[in-house]
Simulated scan of single mutants.
Amino acid sequence: MNTGNFFRLCLFLMLLMISGVSHAGIQVGGTRVIFPASDHEASLQVRNEGTDDIMIQSWIEAGSEQADRDIPFAITPSLARLSHRKQQTLRIFYQGKGLPEDRESVFWVSVQEIPQVSSSENSLQVAFRQRLKLFYRPNGLPGKPEESANTLKWNILRNAGKAVLLATNDSAFHVSFAKVIVIAGDKEYVVEPEMISPRDAQKMSIKGLPASVGGDAQIIWESINDYGALIEHKTSIKF
């Protein structure tokens, strides 16, 4: 038997051994959770679209801004059984203190699927996890969240021989991106986008743009709103 046939036979036998692989079956309602301070709680819907009963485990993790702080949120139920085609409402509560009142704060909600123990000996079970951003929004913040992405200030800087894109966010809200593109010298350059915190600035790498290039440029970016929709924005700058 030659090497190619032997490899294909081994691959076929491996696939037979793990024929009982468990597939992810949970669907989470939404792409983010917005928690206005005026509400007593926020909620998140989780539905089991798989064929088997599962357990779901949920918890809240700190964002980069709160890495060294206690998490002032609780989620319930933290552990729940979910049958086929059934859904569970996860309720999120804030303890009422510990976060800035002049800007949004961001955390992560994690929902992990724990498959039931399989009756088959030759099965591979995988625990799938989904993570969503949780934005806590204090009362009385100036401006509107849907306007924050359009008020960003942009500039292209030279840093260690490379061109980087600087975005400044003067608003009290986070700005999340689906994509950012720089058009300079009739060429399009892709940017590695990162979420910008309120009243902060963020440097982003521009792939392929020579540091020697200058003049006029157009910035095109897609922001993500509270409902997960993509909103396109454009502006022109000189650098």
Results as ranks from 00 to 15, higher is better:
Ala127Pro: 09
Phe128Arg: 01
Arg129Cys: 10
Arg129His: 09
Gln130Ala: 10
Gln130Val: 13
Lys133Ala: 13
Lys133Asp: 11
Lys133Tyr: 10
Leu134Cys: 10
Leu134Val: 08
Leu134His: 03
Tyr136Ser: 04
Pro138Ile: 12
Pro138Tyr: 15
Asn139His: 11
Asn139Ala: 15
Gly140Gln: 09
Gly140Ser: 13
Gly140His: 08
Leu141Asp: 01
Gly143Lys: 07
Lys144Tyr: 11
Glu146Cys: 05
Glu147Trp: 07
Glu147Val: 00
Ser148Trp: 01
Ser148Ala: 15
Ala149Ser: 11
Asn150Arg: 14
Leu152Gly: 04
Lys153Thr: 07
Lys153His: 13
Trp154Lys: 02
Trp154Leu: 06
Trp154Val: 04
Trp154Met: 06
Ile156Trp: 00
Ile156Cys: 00
Ile156Leu: 01
Leu157Ser: 01
Arg158Asp: 03
Arg158Ile: 08
Lys162Cys: 00
Lys162Ala: 09
Ala163Trp: 03
Val164Tyr: 00
Val164Met: 00
Leu165Gly: 01
Leu166His: 07
Ala167Pro: 03
Ala167Ile: 06
Thr168Ile: 15
Thr168Tyr: 08
Asn169Ala: 09
Asn169Pro: 07
Ser171Lys: 03
Ser171Asp: 05
Ser171Cys: 12
Ala172Phe: 08
His174Ile: 08
Ser176Pro: 09
Ser176Met: 15
Phe177Ile: 11
Ala178Asp: 14
Ile181Val: 15
Ile181Thr: 13
Ile183Met: 09
Ala184Pro: 00
Ala184Asn: 08
Gly185Pro: 00
Asp186Phe: 10
Asp186Gln: 10
Asp186Arg: 09
Lys187Asn: 04
Glu188Trp: 10
Tyr189Gly: 01
Val191His: 03
Val191Trp: 00
Glu192Tyr: 00
Glu192Thr: 14
Ile196Asp: 02
Ala201Arg: 15
Ala201Thr: 14
Gln202Phe: 12
Met204Arg: 01
Met204Glu: 03
Met204Ile: 08
Lys207Val: 11
Lys207Ser: 04
Lys207Met: 07
Lys207Leu: 07
Gly208Cys: 00
Leu209Asp: 01
Pro210Val: 01
Val213Lys: 08
Val213Asp: 03
Gly214Glu: 07
Gly215Ser: 03
Asp216His: 09
Asp216Thr: 11
Ala217Trp: 03
Ala217Val: 05
Ile219Lys: 02
Ile220Gln: 14
Ile220Val: 15
Trp221Lys: 06
Trp221His: 06
Glu222Ile: 05
Ser223Met: 05
Ile224Asn: 04
Asn225Cys: 09
Asp226Val: 14
Asp226Ile: 15
Gly228Pro: 04
Gly228Arg: 11
Gly228Ile: 12
Ile231His: 07
Glu232Asn: 08
His233Gln: 14
His233Ser: 12
His233Cys: 05
Lys234Arg: 15
Lys234Phe: 04
Ser236Tyr: 04
